[in-house]
Design a protein around this nucleic acid. Structure first.
Length: 479
RNA sequence: GGCGCGUUCGUCUAGUGGUCUAGGACACCGCCCUCUCAAGGCGGAGAUCGCGGGUUCGAAUCCCGCACGCGCUACCA
């Protein structure tokens, strides 16, 4: 049987980093086994739907490099892949469950249910459906149905016994039926709840492995029961540990960014985000840390997924992202950096110049949005000495010689200056005058920028070009 | 409250009975490199393996209990 996994988010907003990891693991597992990865939209709660969320979800997965084989828009042999378009299927099987005696109509109002729950909690009991409608006679049911009273359908949980299932990550898990509720599987608005929809869809879509968050572990017995009631073959289950806030609660807003889009907007690279997230809860068993998505596919296995939740450590993500920034294709990186510069009003019309800037400052960046903190030196034409040390360097007796030589050599250049030519010139000045090291370079840096530290000098020189250099150095030569 | 799952440096983790006086990475500190700032290289500090009992010649690794954390307990997913 071929491996088929799925990522099944509800379209309630942005893609959460935890969701991205779930999607990634599903994708990696499917691809590792030459299987298919399916995207399915679980929009059975009509009250929580956010317009545009599906498009956004797809776009974000695409950004991350996670491609699905079947899903909304793209289609596939087992569609539609949006649950709100599969309602008849859920109805059909809900009815089948009633016929087989595994489910029943419930006419209890939400108000009564809520009141019942409150009383149960108050008296120290576990909140649980009291079974009122489970005990209705067929005649009573027919009568209420004929009267058109709003109804839901509940699945029957056996009154005693327990169920044990094997989780690929946690091993055998046993849960007693006593603690399970007669869950509503079809709501009064005609939509299924998660429990019915997930089982029906996973069956029809031939999902072989259900890989999802740990929050689903306690309700897995309900799903297994449904498979058994419907006489369907069960998939394998794997429940992933949760991603946590620094205070160990479930990763959430309010404690930093949780939407993948937030990271994208700040200029985190998709390769870095995917690499980092893959390592939160999984490791290759050796000490490698950097992986392309292809390498992840090759290495991934559920056996090496951890059981305990992992704190989302932004510092380590920053380190990993900075590593990717340092090694990224410079043209691509420049393209990605341009919007941040543009937004601050910097002139980005000359791509080659911008490229020099990016090359010069990339070692400082944890994420691209930070680039604007380092580029002032390239765009500010008003040179002002930043401190006494700068002045002291300029006062050095050797400085005047360096400046004169430098300008002279620049003027004799029949082409524009670049980093290599600058290095050559510096070498010449050194051999001709004996001035070297700090006394040679620092005055030039200061004359060009006013500052005693900054980007690599050869790149600054290449960026400014002959004219600007002559202007700036000339200014200090006159004084 | 009930049920379930989990627990190795601050964080991500390696570890499946002896090679663990517990390894790697991030962050932190120092040194080297260097015109500067970064980057990079090298090194340092940092974990009584949640606690208590067992089993065993020997336990981070197996068993039991406890504690703590998290999750679930909806006509939400």
């Amino acid at each position: 049987m071929s491996v088929r996994t799925r990522f099944a988010p509800s379209p309630t907003g942005f893609l959460h980093v935890g969701g991205l990891r779930t999607a990634l693991y599903n994708y990696l597992f499917a691809k590792k086994h030459n299987g298919q990865f399916i995207l399915r939209i679980e929009d059975t709660d009509q009250t929580r739907i956010v317009p545009g969320a599906v498009e956004n979800l797809i776009e974000t997965l695409k950004w991350a490099g996670i491609e699905f084989d079947e899903g909304p828009i793209k289609g596939g042999p087992y569609g539609p892949y949006i649950q709100s378009q599969r309602l008849e299927l859920y109805h059909k099987h809900a009815l089948e469950l009633i016929e087989k005696g595994h489910a029943y109509y419930c006419f209890c109002t939400p108000e009564r249910l809520e009141k019942m729950r409150q009383e149960q909690i108050k008296s120290g009991q576990a909140p649980k459906y009291d079974g009122t409608c489970r005990r209705l006679t067929p005649e009573e049911v027919k009568k209420k149905l004929d009267e058109g009273i709003p109804k839901t359908i509940r699945m029957k949980i056996p009154e005693w016994g327990e169920i044990t299932f094997n989780d690929l990550i946690r091993g055998d898990v046993t849960i007693n039926f006593k603690v399970l509720d007669d869950q509503i599987i079809l709501k009064s608005d005609g939509f299924p709840t998660y429990h019915l929809a997930v089982v029906v869809d996973d069956h029809y879509m031939k999902i072989s492995h259900v890989i999802r968050g740990e929050e689903w572990l306690p309700s897995t017995p309900k799903h297994i029961l449904l498979y058994e009631y419907l006489n369907w073959e069960k998939p394998q289950f794997a429940h992933l540990p949760l991603l946590l806030n620094p205070d160990r609660t479930k990763l959430s807003k309010r404690q930093g960014d949780v939407a993948v889009e937030d990271y994208r907007a700040k200029g985190y690279l998709p390769e870095a985000v995917v690499n980092f997230i893959a390592l939160l809860g999984w490791n290759p068993g050796d000490e490698r840390e950097f992986f392309t998505i292809e390498e992840l596919i090759k290495e991934f296995s559920l056996e090496r997924v951890n059981k305990a939740g992992a704190i989302f450590d932004i510092k380590k993500l920053n380190w990993m992202n900075s590593h990717y920034i340092k090694n990224y294709d410079l043209d691509k990186l420049t393209q990605l950096a341009i919007p941040f510069l543009k937004e601050k009003g910097y002139d980005v019309s000359n791509f080659q110049k911008v490229k020099i800037i990016v090359e010069a400052v990339r070692t400082h960046l944890e994420y691209l949005a930070q680039i604007v903190d380092y580029v002032d030196v390239f765009f500010n034409d008003e040179i002002r000495l930043e401190n006494g040390e700068a002045q002291e360097m300029l006062n050095l007796s050797t400085t005047k010689i360096v400046f004169e030589k430098f300008i002279n050599k620049i003027e004799n250049l029949d082409t524009e200056i670049d980093r290599e030519k600058f290095k050559q010139i510096a070498k010449e000045i050194q051999s001709e005058t004996g001035i070297k090291g700090k006394n040679l370079f620092m005055p030039i840096r200061i004359a060009l920028t006013g500052k005693t530290h900054g980007p690599e000098l050869p790149l600054l020189v290449e960026f400014f070009g002959k004219e600007k250099i002559k202007q700036r150095i000339g200014k200090f030569l006159k004084v």
